[in-house]
Design a protein around this nucleic acid. Structure first.
Lengths: 215, 215
DNA sequence: GCGAAACTTTGCACAGCCTGCAAGATCGGT
DNA sequence: ACCGATCTTGCAGGCTGTGCAAAGTTTCGC
């Protein structure tokens, strides 16, 4: 009756999960302390008590251990998007589809704050974050195209997915930059509202209500 | 092309310029033919008649030889943006600032079409394109912030620069995907118009005028 | 229990990227 | 022709990442 969290996997799978997170957290901690290229795979592996060869059995590259499983997150967003009723505009649908991922950020708050912090301090990782999204952005593009019913050569789906991806990323970085002072959901809302408004210049002093339910 | 387009530099500088472009074009050609990781730096260097060590005197990495001097382009955009009159909204100002770069794309049409084609076929390069822009995006963010006069913790400048960057990139890729059938300027206009309109769903059949002056 | 099957970890060899460093070649000015 | 500045090159070496085969561990059937 081990009070383990997940449905009784075999011991083998539990072990795998443990080494995987051990490697990922060791990588994050070490890189946060010493900087990306002052940390070798060997050091990370040593900190997780495995050989460096094993590291590459879990992650295809050093960077991948740091940025986390972006593909899984993106897949979830795509799934939610596919479920959304077709009446709601694509932009709003994507924002709604992000809700689940945003919750996860808030739940694993410390992890994601650290991760975003590491990304900000090691700009070489930012592209990798984008790269991880590229694959899923492609499938998201298809979903959007089907959704709004445009020919394949139309630019809207690709534009929408890349732009919303950029918006979410900046919101997440801003969230980490302020150590999570404001909830991530607020920042994402703000960004999407600005997008929906057509990116107008903000007045120099026009922020009576933060952004929530303007009456 | 004109053999000596620029102000009479010394022979030394001309030689440097020549080897630089030799390396860059050799890299593009070889990678276009064989794929990114089927081509080694050694092969590229051999094709340009220099040692592989010299390659790294010109480019810090293999990828950098392929994506071109994005930093220079971005710097130019920032410069144009700084010159723009403050009355025009930031989004429109950025679009105007891109005009010069767009012209350059059209002038070196073949080069940029090939480059974008290589990027599309080797997705590992896409992130590098973004990375190259990150540095300049930071300075652009500052210019925008000063322009619209918002406090430093406001999200608008960062959102605007990353989003317009994404928009330009998708337009450029779309341009290359259709082998430059439509002028790049048109595609960029279309993308920016969509942004300014708040990314509304396009009607399934709503294309009376392509995008210019919708009356 | 026990042993075979399936899977995981590890060491080893190796290709490729990239960086200092120092020697040698080339260019620019005098 | 000479000297200093600059560019090229080879060399040595560290790090990332991959294939392969020999251990070691877990799982499953009996």
């Amino acid at each position: 009756m081990t009070p383990d969290s997940l449905p009784a996997d075999g011991l083998r799978d539990r072990k795998k999960r443990r080494t995987r997170t051990a490697l990922a957290t060791a990588a994050l901690r070490l890189v946060a302390e010493n900087g990306l290229d002052q940390v070798t795979v060997e050091e990370i592996s040593a900190a997780a008590d495995v050989s460096s060869r094993t590291f590459f059995n879990y992650f295809p590259s050093k960077d991948d251990a740091l940025i986390g499983d972006q593909a899984a997150l993106n897949a979830r967003v795509v799934a939610r998007l596919a479920e959304a009723p077709p009446e709601v505009p694509a932009l709003a649908a994507i924002r709604a589809a992000l809700a689940e991922v945003i919750e996860e950020f808030q739940e694993d708050r410390e992890l994601w704050l650290l991760r975003m912090d590491v990304v900000m301090r090691n700009p070489a990782l930012l592209p990798r974050l984008v790269a991880a999204g590229v694959e899923a952005e492609r499938s998201m593009t298809e979903v959007v195209a089907a959704r709004v019913g445009v020919p394949a050569d139309h630019g809207f789906p690709a534009l929408l997915t890349t732009v919303t991806g950029a918006a979410f990323r900046t919101a997440a970085l801003r969230w980490a930059a302020t150590a999570g002072a404001r909830p991530l959901a607020d920042l994402v809302d703000e960004a999407f509202d600005t997008l929906a408004a057509g990116l107008p210049d903000p007045g120099p002093a026009a922020k009576p209500h933060p952004s929530r339910t303007p009456s």
